[in-house]
Write a protein that binds this DNA or RNA. Structure first.
Lengths: 276, 276
DNA sequence: CTTGACTCTCAAGTCGCTTGAGAGTGTACA
DNA sequence: TGTACACTCTCAAGCGACTTGAGAGTCAAG
């Protein structure tokens, strides 16, 4: 008969943990004094405790361990549990390794630039969106504004409300300062909506923007004249972190145009990992 | 000016999280209505939020992020933080990979044996211990009991109390059924204690058992006649999991000898990882 | 009979949120 | 103008596997 402190020394498990295990019914002491409440353990309880520690070591929750030890579960069920754990652990390993790479990159950046970069690139996924879009070749980039205005006004006349900020998609393979192939897209409700004619040849088309499982995003807060700097930041980031763009890049215009405050724009690149 | 739900859609962060960030002072809304309490955000707050997400992605705590963003911290300090994180993440990766290997081994075992093994091997570290020990070549293994009795009686006469269960250390390189080189060691308090003569030639020596950073341990609950089975279990386990013994093995006798209950013994192997 | 080491229970804290209850607010439509 | 309904608010509790601490009781030695 060991008191809890002695038993704790034997098995190298803190007293507080033993008490916790007793409370949740994972490892009851062999005997509990009815008057003092003192817990008394036997050495024969060590095998059970060791099974507990071993299962815990595999990453199972205490609840699962109680199940495995108290009810007797079929090997198949245990195999199922372990296989789920296996997948989970693999995912953790992958995630943490990616995180490690990001931290290393960040350290390198700080070392090279002597300070913490203030513009942040964020990875995320983008879901498919229902939009009304207008695609055109335009002579200069600042005509995007005119396209948006035209699209917005036409929707306004039809009584259609946007459900998210407008987007411009740049379809050219390489960067062009002129004759850009641009599509402006305004997210709308999924309801039954048809294409809308603008003039003799041009149409506002209803379509579904594709989902992108992985995109890199960065916010540019400031005038469009300086947006190239932010493109440079994201480009550098992609190169340093081993990603490659996989399709047309987006700009999302998060603020309505106002005279007194600079616009906020989100730049989005669909990407994939190199050698992934 | 976005309401919290709109801002949440923009940045793809749940409303509940945004409220939480506001509460802990990580990202205050640009404006809070004094009467209704409604939070209003600006698109210009997105860069800060993105910085938050990026730092969180590196695994920093929100508290650290508040520090980095609100006070302006020197690049050196940030480098320090990141390097600590780097080490932590590396450790997580290593641990999880080891865990993955253990889970895989376990799955294999279940497949081979058709059931969950009930004897568990546990890895742990053992600290250095102050002991009084007696080392001898003995003809048969069951003489260990006699050595222990002799040592205990001698300590008893000197009024010295053991502080933990007695240990036997098997110093032979290979297993020998006879003429074993065995040391019995009884942990005692660290106080100033000298060697004790037993008879003409033999001594109880005071010494410090070395610490072992990594040992494999298994509990054998039952008579000594069946202890070889448990040795086989731990041996198989070491082979399957890629470990190699690095020194003399121990047995710890967790129960005092009693006639009616079988003894409980812990078997301990100092080990190291192969190819580690 | 005291001292000091040990034990007990119960509550709260850890982290980064999420969930839920209960109440108030904003806006579109009949 | 009423009303539905989506949205927002605050505050409290919950997650998991314990740890920490307060306050009270117990045990063994001297």
């Amino acid at each position: 008969m060991f008191k809890i402190g002695e038993f704790s020394k034997l098995c190298r498990v803190p007293v507080s943990a033993l008490r916790y295990y007793a409370n949740i019914g994972l490892l009851e002491p062999a005997h509990t004094d009815k008057f003092t409440g003192y817990r008394y353990y036997l050495a024969t309880q060590l095998p059970r405790l060791n099974r507990i520690l071993a299962l815990k070591d595999l990453g199972l929750s205490l609840e699962q361990i109680i199940k495995i030890l108290n009810e007797n579960i079929s090997p198949d069920e245990i195999r199922g549990m372990l296989r789920i754990r296996q997948a989970e652990i693999q995912q953790i390993v992958d995630e943490e390794q990616a995180r490690l790479a990001r931290v290393a990159t960040r350290l390198l950046q700080i070392q090279q630039e002597g300070k913490m970069p203030t513009q942040e690139v964020v990875l995320k996924a983008i879901e498919s969106q229902h939009v009304i879009s207008l695609r055109q070749i335009i002579a200069t980039p600042d005509m995007v504004g005119a396209m948006l205005t035209e699209a917005f006004m036409t929707l306004g006349m039809k009584g259609i409300q946007p459900v998210a900020p407008p987007i411009a998609i740049f379809h050219d393979q390489e960067f062009k300062p002129a004759d850009m192939d641009v599509e402006v897209a305004i997210p709308v409700d999924g309801g039954g909506q048809g294409d809308i004619a603008l003039d003799g040849e041009r149409w506002l088309r209803v379509r579904q923007l594709p989902a992108h499982p992985l995109v890199a995003s960065i916010i540019h807060a400031g005038h469009f004249e300086t947006i190239e700097q932010t493109y440079a930041v994201i480009g550098t980031w992609l190169a340093q972190n081993g990603y490659r763009p996989t399709g047309a890049s987006y700009e999302v215009y998060l603020t309505a145009p106002e005279a007194d405050t600079p616009p906020v724009t989100e730049i989005i690149f669909p990407i994939e990992k190199i050698n992934g």
